[in-house]
Design a protein around this nucleic acid. Structure first.
Length: 907
RNA sequence: GGGAGCAUAGCUCAGCUGGUUCAGAGCAUCUGCCUUACAAGCAGAGGGUCCGCGGUUCGAAUCCGUGUGCUCCCA
């Protein structure tokens, strides 16, 4: 331990040193034992991504909870890992291959592409882990899991097969959301809707065999889909179109005759009341088509260009085709009107391409039953959501209205769907080609095709005829197993880890993935573990910039985490994000809060320096009477009481997940109570030795404060912990247990905590009031005063008189029974303080102040009197309330008396 | 269109089951201090019709209704 501490706290060296030490000691590694587990699984970030401020918030919250649990007797286990993020990663790999190596995806085989993708993953996947380390996260690095690890891959396949066998997965042609850029299907949740200024086109459809120019006017937003029209629909009650019953109309551009159908679905007041029906390209039209048995003509290719079926504009992009279609309709005199129209369009969450409703054969999960289980888990209170009021309703609504989940993606990066096809299109679901072949044979045999010899393979197909489904599974179809499979719970059911760590304790995540992930994890948990995956879900808010804008790459308003850590230190960044993060609310993040954290580091560091200086100056052991001891150690007695009080407050705040409040409370305890009050109270005169009791107590308190703060700011606290006292190897704050430090209180006092706290408050109030007087009267800090106290509680003030004298620079403190002439008076509560000074004072200043106070107290008293004279109040209010009012009445009267007396002495 | 939430000091927010220890905190502002832990600091101070309007109540920032404004989710 050295006394040559640097002027300021230097985070860079300290952080690296401690993180290395903690991990080398294995403090973050967990294996099952007799203690209760506290399990957290990290929401796996995208493997190729970097941590943004949202992650920073999430990881910090988790680390706070995990460290707190580790220090509270739990076997804390925090599992890190990452997600393969199929669409996002594949898009990135495709893009980079083209840019860096000039390779196109279509020129690669599946195997070649995957090889590139894994290379990419190995190269960039480490960034996230590095960032998590830099932040100080206490994750178990022995448990790093990736959603494409072998065991995880197998688990996903196993679950797919199981759900298929249970009839919960099916394959079929449905209207799905198609991303023409990524060329894959999307789930409903992957589509984001935005308000767009569009146009409504009024197009004339001629009536077939109609008299002369007879036609029907149709309003559409998508004239480029006209070629796919297979009917025109009107409301059966619409007077205007009764005459069209049984008639046909001619679709423009392609001149196809289609029927006019009648359905109440059509809103007669919208547009012209006539709707063109394009079953292949609109979900509502699709449903109408099913109902009326209409053909669906798919006029689009998978990349969003027009297909041969469109007959015109073939190969043209859909938006280009829209322009052309409008031009041509105009030329043909069929376009009657264009009008501006506010509409909502679906965009792909990943590529931001306009999503195309498309009929396509995909794999789906039936959600109804599993959704019910997931709903029960939450409504029964088994899984508790924080903050509940905000998210419970959203959660319920989604689950009650859940639709089947489209899980197939036309991509290569991900778990390949374990379905095997024969050339005729029939398929089986099986983990391997061999199993699939066996299954086919069984089916073939069962169907009565008994082989006529002893040979076991007489089916008309060979194993080489089998082809595997080309598609992979939605990323979330693997993520939903996360809390189970990070402990190998699917691949090796009932292993010791899963039995010990599951269900996990708390899931910390953003509210934006409540459906994608949280709800589905609960489903998977209930389905495969018959138990919830976590006890609590804690939703953090969204991190926005100072102006309230969402942080995003395109706006460039998201700070780089490593750079922030570089500038402020990890503790300061953690402080910055936590201090501005009220539970569940969005938070406006600004660098300045990190700066505040840095200042805080420095403040603590300087308190350490002060203690080191005392050590150098010497420690004295005084012999004292009991009274003398209590007097000398009042500050310590008070701080002990205050510390106990705050510890309880913080504990309560943790229980409610009010982490930001907890940090504020600790911050204020350290800065205000410890540094500003306590240390000043016990500080010996310059160069003098400090009382041994006080010194030891101060060390104890400092230790406990560091322990209290450690979950939030692990590095600086660990560093200081080791500076405070010499520690044996293995005695580190990171694994210290709450309650173990400072249990044997250094200062034993006969005074009750609440008495001490009250007296402490009076002392603080008196100091502040007297300092205010000094300030207002322009006294220099060096100008000493003489102080006279007139109080009912002389005994109490005697105990703290030395502190008071020091804090207000009084060279004399006396107790008096009457007003002292020639003094400035200040009234604190019922007590009067007379300040005598050499400096000439302006009586008006304090007179004004006293008058102001008098006015307030009189108004206050009047209000109380009014209340107490109200019979209905006295009758109806609770007795203790009335009693309290009487007390207030009495207090106010006394205060007024004290002030008036003081005013009298001023003349 | 359906649902949820929010509105308190210049800014960001606390205020649990209604009652002047309830009108608060942190930033920001102003004043005075380079006091040998810390000027990245210390000591003080000022600042609010608790969004508008109704209601319930002895009593409303708090409960109810309504209007306005904002945010989010869903179609």
């Amino acid at each position: 331990m050295s006394n040559t501490l640097p002027k300021n706290f230097e985070p860079q060296q300290v952080e690296e040193k401690w993180y290395k030490h903690w991990t080398e000691q294995g403090y973050f590694n967990s294996t099952p034992d007799d203690r209760k587990p506290f399990t957290v699984v990290i929401p796996p970030p995208n493997v190729t991504g970097v941590l943004h401020m949202g992650h920073t918030l999430n990881e910090t919250v988790q680390d706070v909870l995990v460290r707190k649990a580790r220090m509270s007797g739990f076997n804390a286990c925090w599992v890190p890992g990452s997600d393969h993020a199929s669409i996002a990663t594949e898009a990135k790999v495709v893009q980079l291959l083209e840019k860096e190596k000039g390779i196109k995806k279509q020129d690669l085989s599946r195997e070649e592409f995957l090889k590139h993708a894994f290379e990419w993953k190995d190269k960039y996947g480490g960034i996230i882990n590095h960032q998590i380390k830099k932040l100080g996260c206490s994750v178990d690095w022995n448990r790093v899991t990736f959603t494409m690890d072998d065991h995880y891959y197998q688990a996903v396949i196993k679950v797919f097969i199981d759900l298929y066998n249970k009839g919960l997965i099916y394959r079929g042609a449905r209207m799905i959301n198609w991303d023409p850029q990524a060329k894959t299907a999307l789930s409903d949740e992957e589509v984001e809707y935005k308000d767009i200024q569009g146009k409504l086109y009024y197009v004339r459809y001629k009536v077939a065999n109609g008299a002369g120019d007879e036609s029907i006017l149709i309003a559409t937003q998508r004239p480029e889909t006209i070629m796919g029209d297979t009917a025109v629909c009107v409301n059966p009650n619409d007077e205007r179109y009764q005459h069209l019953k049984g008639k046909k109309v001619i679709v423009p551009l392609v001149n196809r005759e289609v029927p006019v159908i009648f359905d109440e679905y059509v809103d007669p007041s919208f547009g012209t009341g006539a709707l063109k029906v394009t079953p292949a390209h609109d979900i509502n039209d699709y449903n109408l088509g099913l109902k009326h048995n209409l053909p669906a003509i798919d006029t689009l290719n998978e990349d969003g260009t027009l297909s041969a079926a469109a007959q015109v504009f073939v190969g043209m992009d859909r938006f280009e085709a829209r322009k052309k279609a409008v031009e041509q309709l105009k030329a043909e005199g069929l376009l009657m009107k264009e009008e501006e129209y506010q509409t909502r369009l679906g965009f792909s969450q990943r590529t931001n391409a306009v999503v195309e409703p498309r009929i396509s054969t995909q794999w789906f999960v039936k959600m109804r039953e599993m959704a019910d289980d997931a709903l029960n888990a939450v409504t029964s209170g088994d899984v508790k959501i924080h903050p509940e009021e905000r998210f419970l309703a959203t959660y319920k609504y989604w689950l009650e209205n859940v639709k089947d989940w489209c899980i197939s993606r036309q991509l290569w990066w991900g778990q390949r769907i374990p379905a095997w096809y024969l050339p005729d299109g029939t398929f089986v679901v099986a983990a391997t080609r061999e199993e699939a072949f066996q299954e086919f044979q069984n089916q073939w045999a069962k169907a009565g095709n008994q082989s006529n010899s002893t040979a076991n393979d007489h089916s008309p197909f060979t194993i080489d005829d089998l082809t595997q489904d080309e598609d992979v599974l939605d990323t979330w179809f693997s993520s939903w197993l996360w809390p189970i499979e990070v402990f190998n719970g699917i691949s090796q059911p009932n292993n010791p880890d899963i039995n010990y760590y599951y269900p996990t304790s708390v899931l910390v995540t953003g509210q934006d993935i409540i459906f994608f992930w949280v709800a589905r994890m609960i489903m998977a948990g209930m389905e495969y573990m018959k138990e919830k995956p976590f006890e609590y879900v804690y939703f953090t808010g969204m991190v926005r910039d100072k102006q309230g804008r969402k942080m995003s790459k395109s706006l460039g308003n998201s700070p780089d985490l490593l750079e922030l850590i570089d500038r402020f230190g990890a503790d300061a960044v953690r402080f910055g994000i936590m201090i501005s993060a009220p539970a569940g609310n969005d938070l406006l993040f600004d660098d300045s809060s990190c700066e505040q954290g840095k200042f805080f580091n420095n403040k603590i560091w300087n308190a350490l320096k002060l203690l080191k200086m005392w050590e150098t100056n010497g420690i004295a052991s005084y012999d004292r009477s009991k009274e003398g001891f209590e007097k000398a150690t009042f500050a310590a007695t008070w701080f002990q009481a205050r510390l106990n009080q705050v510890k309880n407050e913080v504990e309560a705040l943790y229980k409610e997940f009010k982490l930001s409040e907890a940090l504020k409370t600790i911050y204020s305890l350290i800065w205000d109570d410890f540094c500003s009050w306590y240390l000043e109270w016990v500080k010996p005169p310059f160069g003098q030795p400090i009382d041994q009791h006080l010194y030891n107590s101060t060390l104890d308190y400092f230790e406990q404060l560091m322990q209290l703060l450690h979950p939030f700011m692990p590095f600086v606290t660990e560093e200081i912990y080791h500076h405070l006292r010499d520690r044996e190897n293995g005695n580190d704050l990171a694994i210290s247990q709450f309650g173990d430090l400072g249990e044997q209180q250094a200062v034993v006092s006969s005074l009750q905590d609440n008495v001490v706290l009250l007296l402490g408050n009076s002392l603080k109030d008196a100091i502040t009031a007297i300092r205010d007087v000094r300030n207002k009267n322009n006294m220099k800090p060096k100008d000493a005063i003489k102080l006279y106290i007139q109080s009912d509680n002389q005994k109490g003030y005697e105990l703290v008189a030395d502190i008071l004298a020091k804090q207000v620079n009084a060279d004399e403190v006396n107790f008096v029974a009457d007003a002292v002439a020639g003094c400035i008076t200040t009234v604190v509560g019922k007590d009067k303080f007379y300040i005598q000074s050499e400096v000439a004072v302006d009586a008006n200043v304090q007179k004004d102040q006293l008058l102001k106070e008098l006015e307030y107290q009189k108004g206050f008293l009047e209000a109380v009197n009014k209340k107490l004279s109200n019979e209905r109040f006295v009758q109806n209010a609770k007795p203790e309330i009335v009693e309290n009012e009487r007390k207030k009445q009495n207090d106010a009267a006394q205060k007024i008396k004290a002030i008036e007396e003081s005013l009298a002495t001023l003349g």
